[in-house]
Design a protein around this nucleic acid. Structure first.
Lengths: 216, 216
DNA sequence: TCATAAAATAACTATAAGTCATTTTATAGA
DNA sequence: TCTATAAAATGACTTATAGTTATTTTATGA
């Protein structure tokens, strides 16, 4: 049944086209200001058609969020390719996270809002579940790096990798939100550059992860 | 002019009453679901009257946010009363921050959203400015503690207190968002308790703040 | 060529934020 | 006490926009 397959492909393509249009509108005007009519016009479709593909405006934004999380996860996967030790991998992931936030601020923003408002989506929302799952996959990469580090001796062995990954995740998110959102303000008011903040944050993590001296 | 003063007092009181009503509505239904008509009914006023006191729904929510930030700042002020050293004060502030988030989750939620969406308010918005200012005051308490710690020798002297305060602020916010929002989920899925996460986060900070051994 | 199903449309409804002409209330002066 | 005026409050109204649905268009297979 080649036709059925083609139609399915076209349907998928149309869905992606709608997300493309929604991205352009949402990212340029801001989600609050953007309307579904805007998106429909941008996608060269009627508004009703949008609702054939997405249940609501929130769900359409969630589709964009998922894209962001997927991109981030891919960056994490690439980041752990080269480094040898677990510690180095952990820092490579950290760097990738900051790079992601800088390169795709709109996706990072979407991610932040998702994490803050995740509970508002019910369990039936497939896209929300997928966002959670893919996000968990990203976290698993970090957990894996920490585990490896404990084994290869580059990371202290008195930490629980899952707990520490959660902590690093939360802390990194917080730092990036700070730098990404208030970066310019902090630079102007306090005169310190954001890369320095990020660098210093890494020092904090290094201190927490590295094996303590034997004489302690 | 005793009458003018009384009227001013009454006006202030009414404003507070509206915020009270809005809190009950917003906190129970959620901001998205709550309507200004709901608030008006709860406040036993007409909707038009609400708009005599607040320019918009967002601004009304900002008034609630400000309350939260003020409460948090007061907790910080109390927290630094007892401890002697700067390091102890810093940790007392950290504890106060976590306590605040646990005791007033709705205020913490408001604070998180404010930090994430702060830029959407223009400079003319007095309430937004006030939130920023009071929030800066809270941060200044932490900065002061770090400065004192550097002087009294309880905190290593190779850090910049302002930068480190910003980092600790960002990281703490991130951790609390993680524990406050996903706490139950993490407990069920991964079986670790939130207090442990918070405790371990403190260890990370301790490691970053304490003076290194002399032999390094 | 026609019947059918899938896809798309656009006019429609519903909801809720925000406004404004009007009414009510409180106060100061006659 | 009565009245003019200003402040405060009202609620019906406007506007904006998310979401729905009856209808139309298009593609497919017999």
């Amino acid at each position: 049944m080649g036709i059925a397959e083609r139609r399915e492909r076209e349907k998928q393509q149309r869905q992606q086209d709608i997300i493309d249009a929604a991205e352009r509108i949402f990212f340029s005007k801001g989600i609050q200001q953007a309307t579904m009519d805007d998106v429909a016009t941008e996608a060269e479709l009627s508004k009703g058609t949008l609702y054939l593909y997405f249940k609501s405006k929130d769900e359409l934004y969630l589709a964009i969020t998922l894209r962001g999380i997927q991109i981030m996860t891919e960056l994490f996967q690439k980041a752990v390719q080269k480094p040898a030790t677990g510690l180095e991998k952990a820092f490579a992931i950290g760097t990738a996270f900051f790079t992601f936030a800088q390169k795709y601020p709109n996706y990072f923003d979407a991610l932040s809002h998702f994490e803050l408002d995740e509970l508002q989506f019910d369990d039936g929302c497939i896209l929300a579940t997928e966002c959670s799952d893919v996000g968990q996959g990203a976290l698993n990469i970090l957990i894996g790096a920490l585990k490896q580090g404990i084994e290869d001796g580059s990371i202290r062995n008195d930490i629980d990798p899952v707990r520490m990954a959660a902590i690093m995740w939360g802390m990194s998110s917080g730092i990036i939100q700070l730098t990404a959102l208030k970066g310019k303000h902090l630079e102007q008011e306090h005169g310190f550059n954001m890369e320095g903040i990020v660098e210093e944050s890494f020092q904090v993590f290094r201190c927490a992860l590295e094996r303590k001296a034997e004489n302690e």
